[in-house]
């Protein structure tokens, strides 16, 4: 891949998890797990993003907002769901009166990262896979 190519932008959406995965994502991107090797940067708005990271089981209150934010992302977009339990299958929160997920029943998901909470190494690996796929799609055009 060409180093000078524009960086892929990543945005993070918390769909109501415990916040553990988010902290691990931060740890993955800003500490020794070294994000420099991947061609990405974090952005504040889903409107600018190529890759969306979603955590949490989705609940009554945030469902509309989460779906709306996902729609805003640039095409072609990639959605990565992290959190072995709640992000992928509602996990430990399954059976609650307030959960409305998991996200893959509401939106098409490209990658799942299991374990509760996800490990920083896994976040980096997952982002690498998505960047590769995005590269393929862009170069194919």
């Amino acid at each position: 891949m060409n180093e000078k190519e524009e960086k892929y932008k990543v945005n993070y959406i918390d769909a109501g998890g415990c916040n553990g995965c988010y902290i691990e994502i931060i740890a993955a991107l800003y500490t020794k797990y070294n994000p420099e090797k991947i061609n990405i940067e974090m952005v504040g708005s889903p409107g600018q993003a190529d890759i969306l990271i979603v955590t949490g089981p989705v609940n009554t209150r945030n469902k509309e907002d989460v779906l709306k934010d996902i729609k805003k992302a640039q095409e072609p977009k990639k959605i990565m769901v992290v959190g072995g339990g709640c992000g992928i299958s509602e996990g430990i929160f399954k059976g609650s009166y307030n959960t409305r997920g998991p996200l893959d029943e509401l939106e098409e998901v490209d990658l799942y990262l299991p374990e509760c909470p996800v490990k920083p190494q896994a976040v980096i690996e997952g982002l690498k896979i998505l960047v590769e796929e995005l590269n393929k799609e862009r170069n194919g055009k």
């Binding site: 998890g17 609940n59 009554t60 209150r61 945030n62 929160f93 059976g95 009166y97 307030n98 959960t99």
Partner: peptide, 14 residues
């Protein structure tokens, strides 16, 4: 609030 509410107290009862 409510964007993070998962109903943990209620799940715990079961």
């Amino acid at each position: 609030l409510g964007y993070n509410h998962r109903g943990i107290e209620k799940i715990a009862e079961n």
